[in-house]
Design a binder for these strands. Structure first.
Lengths: 236, 236
DNA sequence: TATAATAAGTGTTGTAAATACATTTATTTA
DNA sequence: TAAATAAATGTATTTACAACACTTATTATA
C-alpha cells in the first residue's frame, strides 16, 4: 500500500520515571545520557519505540533494560511533543511512570547505564524536558495515591504499618495521626497481619503485613480515603 | 546538526473526542473520514501534527478547524500507539478530549466535514481504534467530573439547576435527590443566581445561574463532592 | 535487676458532612 | 377557579472524620 504522502514523520521515544522508596524518602532512578546532545548529563531512562511494539511494551522493555524487572506497575503519564524539546531532531516522548520495590532493583542492577537514585527533593538538572516530566509524574503519583491503593507497589512483600505511614507522609509531605491512619488502612481489608515482627527500627518491633493479593487485584481501581482532605488539595 | 541515525520515524496524529450536551443526553461529534483507508466511515476529527506545533496546539487547531471554536476546555487523554492501529502506515495518535457548549457549535458549524452529533450510547462503529479512544474519554470524563467542576463547560452561559442536574445524571447514569444536589452545588459558591428564569421547560420557571468566573478559574482543580460515592465507584 | 528510653499499638468522643425524606409555591391551561 | 406541572426549600438522622493520650513490649543502662 502506498504511504500517506507529504506528511512528516517524527522520532518517537518512551521515557520512564521510575519511583522507589528506601524507607525514608521517595526517590527516582536516573541515568547518564549516552548520546549526544547532552551526553553525560542526568536523564530519565528512555529509548526509541521499535517498529513492532506499542507504548506499553516499549515502556516495559525500557524499564527491564535498566532494572531487569518485569511485571511492574506502570502507567502512561503524558505525551510530550514540544517541537524543540530535543534540539537535535524533533522527537516526541511518551512518558511512563513506574513504581518499583527499591530492594528488588538493588538485586537486579545493571551497571551499564550509571544509574543512580535521587531523592525526589534533590533532583539534578535533567536533559531536555525531563524535569517537566518528573514534575508531572510527582503530581500524578500524589493524585493517584490519594484515591487509590498504589503505594504498596513501592514496598517489599512484607512491610510494617509505620513504614507504610512514613511512605504516605513522605509523598504527601505531611504527618498523619497514626491511630487514624492505622484504622483507615485496616478498614480497607487489603492487608494481612503476619506473625513476625520487624525488629530493626524499634525495640518493641512492629508487626509485618502482607497484601491480600486477591483483594488488592480486585480493588486497584477502588477508592481509598487515606489522606485527610485539606492537607493536600484545596476543596472548594 | 546530523540526524539521529538508524531510528525510524512515525506519523503523528492528534484526534479529538468532542463532547456536547443538548439538554437531554451527552453526545460526541463525529466526522466522515476523508482519506483512504476507511474513507467515508465515521471517525473522530483528527489530523497530523505539523512541524512547528506541540500537541496542545495541534488539538486546538483541529478542534477549531471543525467547530470554529477557540479557548475551549481541552485535555490530553492518552497516546495510542499500537503498531497496527492504522493498517496503511504506522501512525501514533495523541487523543484529546474537549468539552464544548453545543449551541456555540451550531452557530459556527463548518459543513465541510459532514459532522454529526451522536448520543454517547449510540456511537456507530468507528475507524481504527477510535472506539477505544471514545471509551477511554468517557471513562476519564466521569472520573474527572466526579471530583472537579468541569461539566459547566458543556452548558451555555446561563443555565438552570435542573439542567445542571440532568447533565450530571446523564453522565453518571443515575438520579440524584434534587434537594441534596442543589445544596451541594450551592455550597461550592461557584454559581451566581440570576434574576430571570427559564420558562421553557416548566410553568413555574427555573432561575438561571451563571458561573462566578473568578471563583471558577480559581477552583478548576479543587475538589467537589457532588456525586454520592457508592453510585459510581466502588469504595473499598 | 530495676529503671529509663523508645517506638508500637490501641479506643473514645465530639463534630461535620451526607443522606433521606415531603410540603409549599409559582404559573399555565382547561 | 381548579387542576396540573415542575421548582424551590428545611429538618432530622446517620455516618464518616478528626482530635486526642495512655499502655505495652523490648532493649539498654544504671
Amino acid at each position: 500500500m502506498p504511504k500517506y504522502q507529504k506528511q512528516f514523520r517524527i522520532l518517537v521515544a518512551v521515557d520512564c520515571i521510575i519511583f522507589g522508596f528506601d524507607g525514608v524518602e521517595l526517590k527516582i532512578l536516573l541515568v547518564k545520557r549516552a548520546l549526544e546532545p547532552e551526553k553525560g548529563k542526568w536523564s530519565l531512562m528512555g529509548g526509541y519505540i521499535t517498529e513492532k511494539e506499542n507504548f506499553d511494551r516499549g515502556g516495559a522493555r525500557i524499564l527491564k533494560q535498566l532494572t531487569g524487572l518485569e511485571g511492574v506497575y506502570m502507567e502512561q503519564l503524558h505525551a510530550f511533543g514540544h517541537p524543540d524539546r530535543d534540539p537535535h531532531e524533533r522527537t516526541i516522548a511518551v512518558a511512563y511512570f513506574a513504581l518499583i520495590d527499591i530492594n528488588q532493583f538493588e538485586k537486579q542492577l545493571s551497571t551499564e547505564y550509571h544509574a543512580e537514585w535521587f531523592p525526589i527533593k534533590k533532583i539534578p538538572k535533567l536533559v531536555f524536558d525531563h524535569g517537566n516530566m518528573v514534575a508531572k509524574a510527582k503530581e500524578r503519583l500524589r493524585y493517584k495515591a490519594a484515591f487509590h491503593p498504589i503505594l504498596f507497589e513501592l514496598l517489599p512483600e512484607k512491610f510494617t504499618l509505620p513504614q507504610l505511614q512514613s511512605l504516605y507522609e513522605g509523598i504527601f509531605d505531611t504527618e498523619f495521626d497514626k491511630r487514624n491512619f492505622s484504622r483507615k488502612i485496616q478498614s480497607t481489608k487489603l492487608l494481612v497481619k503476619q506473625k513476625d515482627k520487624d525488629k530493626e527500627s524499634s525495640k518493641k518491633g512492629a508487626y509485618y503485613y502482607k497484601l491480600d493479593k486477591r483483594r488488592y487485584a480486585a480493588n486497584l481501581h477502588a477508592f481509598l480515603n487515606i489522606i485527610p482532605n485539606p492537607v493536600i488539595f484545596n476543596r472548594i
